[in-house]
Design a protein around this nucleic acid. Structure first.
Lengths: 347, 347
DNA sequence: TTGTACGCGTTATCAT
DNA sequence: ATGATAACGCGTACAA
């Protein structure tokens, strides 16, 4: 008796009963299994629609060990770069029949650990992660690797060896391009507002900066190199430090656009003319850089390309039924491009 | 024999075996069931940690009909307002032990339908949705309602009655405040760049705009009221239309900041001085409005408050084990506030 | 306080 | 091409 049956939902058994078929046949018909008569399949699909049947992913996943769900851990969705990456990832995954669980770590290592646990409990088929700037221990991802689930790191990736796929931007080149551009524009005393060296991103950008400086035999003033969290407040603080004693820099390369914007605003307030007295370049090509006056030169990271590569990789690794490797040995490199704007103009 | 057992994972049976207990006891210990000896519970927790046990959410969900997962459908994560709302929702839900599946509809109705299907297949405990601007038929959410799963709409909500909770900003008031402010600043010929009237948002904002105009007995020029998708391109087109024939408006209220920014840029290019010759107000208080020159007056929507209320509501509705209603009859209203900046200054 | 036994909805295996 | 049956891992009513 179905009387009083709360939360009633139709299952393949209901379809089977209505069609006088066995549940196995229903399952096969719904999963495009080859050995199903054309008419039977049509009947099943029709009846499923009629009964409003929706596959229960928990039951299916429990049995088949595949959830068709991918986990994603990122610092914040509100950062422009990440927002763009996510959008592409989700759209592309959707085309391949995968869902995406997006989780924010808020740049907290402990949160990142918890989220990894939760996603493992959800038995996602694969995990995509842009780690915290402070993440140096990656053991919370071990379970996925051990269990044969692909792990893809992008943007902020492990520096040491790890059995996972790495997808990264060419941070060295980005920093090198930006710095070289400042030099070509006539800057001689260039400052660098950079992030913490725990992250590969800022290690590489620092190296790119230094390479460009060296190549042109320009001295690097240690008081003008900052390794700090890239917030507006910290950037203002750095500017203050550089411009309150003696002659400040005539060029600034900032490792993110938030810092570059803060620098521009500091300069405006103090009457330092950009680009005449100070040229500024940022990183990420955040939409804000095009809107502020003067518009800021910045490094484009092609987030949607990053997203596309990630999905390509995930799909490829997951289709390796033949027990192929669960990761790619060579990191995937995404190109960068310098977008030149008014903040570094020579007029 | 465990030999050759690929994808081996520890289950409560492994813990039971290791401890010479029954699986039932393990389950109880792990779920904080009252009738478990303190020592037993400790032993279980310890062994679980030792074996690296992680609950299989599919199995537990299948059995208990609760996934501790909430679904979220939004147009785009990259819109500032939504990004902020999401962040709060996820953080707050996490505190209550819920995970969040975030899906983007890309403002496409058919995608929204598909995502609703997928989330239903995942048997999320509740669904949060900010609908597409074109969504007028909400039947794809019916299954959740019928099944007793709370549905919470925010921002873009159904206009007609629907057995779901509504959480909305005070759009009427926001538009009224912005328009009144323009009038108080001396504007007599005010234009309105608005969104499609299929959405409650723009209906309410249009009404707020008209109310303010009426109250001050200002005429509304129908050629200066635009109902269109709120893109940069459309805004530029509207500006062009208004300023190429005769005297243009001296005030503009735009229903989003992207349009307001585009208007400012058009004005800059054409030598129309803002705020002297044209005053502009936007909507959402996007960070870009504070950065552009001149900074733009805009309506703050308190996205984190929206997020907080959403989670409060979800948690409350889900804890209604006692067969309470699955929705709130009264919509929850989130206040708005006008942030005044240079673009409407009277200096 | 703990154990036994069953079922959640689906899919894989074997049989027909 | 289809059916019967077992199993995935867990939670719970009932028994002990």
């Amino acid at each position: 008796m179905a009387v009083g049956k709360k939360n009633y939902q139709n299952t393949i058994l209901d379809i089977a009963e209505a069609l006088k078929l066995s549940p196995a046949t229903i399952s096969r018909a719904l999963n495009n299994h080859p050995y199903v008569k054309e008419k039977t399949r049509n009947d099943v699909v029709e009846m499923a629609a009629k009964l409003g049947y929706r596959r229960n992913l928990m039951a299916s996943g429990l049995r088949s060990n595949r959830t068709h769900t991918i986990g994603l851990i990122i610092p914040r969705v509100s950062m422009f770069f990440h927002a763009e990456v996510i959008t592409t990832i989700q759209n592309d995954l959707h085309k391949h029949g995968y869902s995406l669980i997006i989780c924010q770590s808020n740049d907290s290592v402990s949160m990142e650990r918890e989220l990894a646990e939760t996603l493992y409990s959800s038995r996602v088929d694969a995990l995509i992660a842009a780690c915290t700037l402070q993440t140096v221990d990656f053991s919370h991802f071990d379970k996925f690797v051990e269990h044969g689930n692909p792990v893809i790191f992008y943007d902020r990736v492990p520096v040491e060896d790890y059995k996972a796929t790495l997808i990264k931007g060419d941070d060295f080149k980005g920093a090198y391009l930006a710095t070289s551009h400042l030099i070509a524009a006539g800057c001689k005393r260039i400052a660098h507002i950079s992030g913490p060296l725990t992250s590969n991103l800022y290690q590489d950008r620092a190296a790119g900066f230094l390479k460009a400086m060296e190549e042109h035999q320009l001295p690097v003033n240690p008081d003008w190199v900052f390794h700090q969290e890239l917030t507006q407040g910290n950037a203002l603080f750095a500017m203050q430090k550089m411009f309150t004693t003696g002659a400040g820099p005539d060029g600034l390369f900032a490792d993110n656009d938030t810092s570059a914007i803060a620098a521009i605003e500091y300069a405006k307030e103090k009457g330092i003319i950009v680009p005449d007295a100070l040229k500024v370049a940022g990183y990420s090509n955040d939409p804000r850089t095009a809107i502020i006056t003067p518009a800021i030169t910045s490094v484009e990271q092609f987030p949607s390309l990053v997203g596309r590569r990630i999905v390509e990789t995930v799909v490829e690794l997951l289709s390796n039924d033949a027990e192929g490797p669960t990761y790619k040995i060579e990191p995937v490199m995404i190109p960068v491009e310098l977008i030149v704007r008014k903040s570094t103009s020579t007029n």
